[in-house]
Amino acid sequence: MSVLEMRVAAIRREAEGILGFDLVPVTGGALPAFTAGAHIDVMLPGLPARQYSLCNAPGETHRYQIAVLLEPASRGGSQHLHERVATGDRLLIGPPKNHFELAPGAGHSLLIAGGIGVTPILAMAEALAAEGASFALHYCARSAARMAFAGRLAAAPFRDRVHLHLDDGPEAQRLPLAALLAARGAGDHVYICGPSGFLDWVKGAALAAGWPEEAVHTEYFSGTVEQRDSDCAFEIEVAGSGQVVTVAKGQTALDALLAAGLDVPNSCTEGVCGMCMTRVIDGAPDHRDQFLTAAERARNDCFMPCSSRALGARLVIEPDY
């Protein structure tokens, strides 16, 4: 993976527990372009790479903007950025990647954000407004103090399409989810980002309301590697090489493959980012990721070794890494 060296040009307090960072290239010049919904990998000393969505307008190439929530159960990434990074410091990042693209030609785009999930949604609103496309942004937060970018949204040229919802506000201010989803038109798409519980709630309601799965787009910020008492050891055969790797109970397939010398690209290690996706040519994966759609899972032609296992005794993979 190519690496970009960045300088922290500015740090802002965007809301309670949320810091915004402006990152500019150390060498100057233009940064790789990105599309709305993209994220970057931030590499911190002694920690796995962390993914943060870009929240500035996609046309900008002089800086990348991210916002970071200080997680109470931080694995080190958010705590490091909040407590140990200062203006002028240098950070290494990966180039932008996007698994949360806007669908071209949508009739109307419904953008729904919960908490820190507003970051990619902001870039989407900027892009749709620049295109003159039809959209509405609904942003939910626990309280006004925890609502990031409220000032930016209030001053945005698309502010008349922004709707703010607070958990501690009056009933009339709550998210009217059923009514929003019931108003679906042909060719409409909905984009959802936020904490897992919020995201699952909105996605489930959209599918129950008849939205086609291909029109419901989600971005998880974190996942969990699910372990079950019923899990058993299984084998992974690498097609064409004769190599067979045993994945022990309690061990992830990714860890087993890496230990066996396979150079599996990986980033989140939680079944969220899709970087470790591996082709399966025989056997049935036990999908536990949050990246693949139901249709993609049903094909059983790929799996995420960081989080998923096998339903049988063996999977045969054909890696392209």
Rank of each mutant, 00 (worst) to 15 (best):
E219I: 04
A33V: 11
T224M: 07
D229T: 00
A123E: 02
G46I: 15
A123C: 04
H62N: 09
G76S: 07
E235R: 14
A155H: 06
G194V: 11
I281V: 10
R50M: 11
C273V: 04
G105P: 12
A38S: 07
D160G: 01
E270F: 00
Q243M: 13
M147Y: 03
S222D: 15
A141L: 09
C193K: 05
H189Q: 12
R228Q: 11
L122G: 10
F34A: 07
L102H: 03
A129Y: 10
F221H: 10
E83C: 00
G88M: 15
R146D: 06
L137M: 07
G76C: 03
Q173S: 09
L122R: 09
A186Y: 06
T246C: 12
R299T: 12
L102N: 10
M1A: 14
A259H: 03
L4N: 14
D231A: 12
E235I: 03
S143E: 05
H80D: 12
E131Q: 11
R90A: 12
Q251H: 10
G187M: 15
L311D: 07
D320S: 15
S267Q: 08
A103L: 11
R84Y: 07
G20C: 03
F303Y: 06
G17Y: 04
L177I: 10
L164F: 00
Q51H: 15
H39E: 00
S196I: 03
D229Q: 06
R159C: 13
A182S: 03
L153P: 02
P170R: 14
A73E: 12
I317M: 05
D41C: 07
M147F: 04
D255L: 05
A259C: 04
P95A: 10
L166I: 04
G94D: 05
P104D: 14
G250H: 10
L31I: 07
A259G: 08
A298M: 00
Q65A: 12
V264L: 01
A186P: 04
G17C: 06
A73G: 13
H62T: 15
R142M: 07
A209H: 05
L166R: 08
L311F: 01
V245G: 08
P285Q: 12
P104N: 14
G194L: 05
A253N: 13
D89I: 08
V280T: 04
A125W: 14
S143A: 15
P48W: 00
D320G: 02
I66S: 11
R75W: 13
Y220V: 00
L19K: 08
H217N: 10
H82Q: 01
E83Y: 13
A172L: 01
L69F: 05
I121P: 12
F158K: 02
